[in-house]
């Protein structure tokens, strides 16, 4: 079985609402669940006809080759995601994947994740893989309030240490999660930081990277029609050298020094 993306039917096993506007979606699909690697995503389309037209991209949060399952985490914010929210178990959906570049470099003693809101979903597979390889996993979850903290149940078991910051102080540290990262970097030897879900945090990590304190990476989103380099929609500006990367083909994660945030 190759690692090329394939277009397949998948069966909805669970579509669980999490909080007000998040959705935890479990699919069964035998092939992509075997081939996907940390850092990759898929395109999903779960409605007939041509409206909405385009499939939607989501990080593959978990893949279980034995159970042949894929877990996605969806923030419900538009027409496509609202349709995903109404999915019933047993429904067939169409998915294309795995897409994007897999993360293959695990040559580090530890990794930190600075993620906000649904951005946490992007790093779950990566954190699991790091943990399985004996790499230290430091997770910092950020949200506006305790009720908006997501993916904790997936990240907690694989984290060496998990910290929480909320804007309103309803749980954990009241204030910026980037303060927790700065503190972590003083306490622990962390040489790689992945961030997702907040431009503000991404800029912070970019600054730390520029200062040579860590090697930073960022997961980016982009409006994309295809997810495989055809539509050229998901352009993100290259830092310094001019021109654009494509989030789908060159990412969705980038060395943070290489992109304009």
């Amino acid at each position: 079985m190759g690692r090329h993306p394939v277009y397949r039917s998948a069966t909805v096993l669970e579509a669980k609402e999490e909080g007000r506007d998040y959705l935890d979606l479990l699919l069964r699909e035998p092939e992509i669940s075997q081939t996907t690697r940390p850092g990759q995503f898929l395109m999903i389309r779960a409605w007939p006809g041509v409206d909405p037209m385009l499939p939607r991209p989501f990080d593959i949060m978990q893949a279980d080759p034995r159970e042949q399952t894929l877990r996605l985490f969806v923030k419900v914010e538009g027409r496509g995601t609202a349709l995903l929210k109404s999915l019933k178990p047993g429904t067939e959906v169409k998915i294309t994947g795995p897409l994007g570049r897999p993360i293959e470099d695990f040559s580090c003693p530890s990794m930190a994740f600075l993620v906000r809101g649904a951005g946490a979903a992007a790093v779950v597979h990566l954190a699991e893989e790091a943990r399985a390889r004996g790499i230290g996993v430091y997770t910092i979850l950020s949200a506006s309030a305790a009720s908006r903290i997501v993916c904790r149940k997936y990240l907690e078991p694989v984290s060496t240490e998990l910290l929480i910051a909320t804007d309103d102080g309803s749980e954990g540290y009241e204030g910026l999660a980037s303060d927790l990262l700065d503190d972590l970097l003083r306490r622990k030897t962390v040489d790689r930081v992945y961030t997702c879900g907040s431009r503000r945090f991404a800029r912070h990590v970019q600054r730390l990277d520029r200062e040579g304190r860590i090697k930073g990476f960022v997961f980016l989103e982009g409006l994309m029609a295809c997810g495989m380099g055809d539509c050229h929609g998901c352009a993100v500006q290259k830092n310094g050298q001019g021109g654009y990367f494509l989030v789908c083909r060159d990412g969705p994660h980038f060395p943070i020094a290489e992109v304009v945030l």
Binding site: V50, D51, G233, A235, Y244
Partner: peptide, 23 residues
């Protein structure tokens, strides 16, 4: 050519708008 600045695409009823700019 680098192509156009994003956003480059936008979904519309039964279709989409694009302004890729032919990178």
């Amino acid at each position: 050519r680098p192509g156009n600045p994003p956003p480059r695409i936008w979904e519309t009823p039964c279709g989409m708008l694009n302004a890729i700019g032919i990178p």
